[in-house]
Simulated scan of single mutants.
Amino acid sequence: MTLFKFAPVALCLAASSLLFAGATQAQTAAPKAAASAASAQDLAKQAEGQLAAAGWLSMLDQRNWGGAYEASSQTFRNMVQIGQWMDSIPGVRAPFGAFESRNASTVVYKTTLPGRADGEYVTAIFETDFANKKSVEEVVTTVREADGKWRVIGYSPR
Rank of each mutant, 00 (worst) to 15 (best):
K133T: 15
R93G: 00
Y155F: 15
N103H: 14
E120I: 03
Q84M: 10
A98F: 10
P31M: 04
L11K: 08
A124W: 04
F76L: 11
N132F: 05
S105Q: 11
Q74W: 06
I153Q: 06
A34I: 11
T24A: 02
K110A: 03
G22E: 01
A7Y: 05
L51Y: 13
L60T: 01
R144H: 08
V80S: 12
T24E: 01
F6S: 14
Y69C: 01
W56D: 03
A146Q: 13
D61C: 02
D42S: 12
V107T: 15
L43K: 12
N103I: 13
I82M: 09
F126H: 00
L19H: 12
R63K: 14
A37D: 14
M79V: 12
S72H: 13
S17A: 14
S73A: 15
P8S: 05
W56E: 02
Y69H: 05
F4G: 04
G119Y: 05
A33P: 02
T28D: 07
G148C: 08
Y109R: 03
F99Y: 15
T141R: 00
S58V: 09
V136A: 11
S72Y: 04
S135G: 07
P95M: 06
N64A: 06
S156K: 11
F126P: 06
A146M: 07
S16L: 11
G49Y: 05
W56L: 05
R93N: 11
W56K: 02
I125Y: 05
L13T: 15
G66S: 09
S73T: 08
V92R: 01
R93S: 10
R144L: 08
P95H: 03
I125Q: 00
W56F: 11
P157V: 00
Q50C: 04
M86K: 07
A94M: 11
A21M: 04
V140W: 04
K32R: 14
Q84C: 02
A124N: 07
A34M: 07
S88L: 09
V143T: 08
D147N: 13
A38S: 11
I89Q: 00
S156D: 00
G148Q: 08
A21H: 02
R144E: 15
R144T: 13
T111E: 15
A124Q: 02
S73P: 12
Q41M: 09
C12K: 08
L57E: 08
T128S: 10
S135Q: 10
G66R: 03
A34R: 09
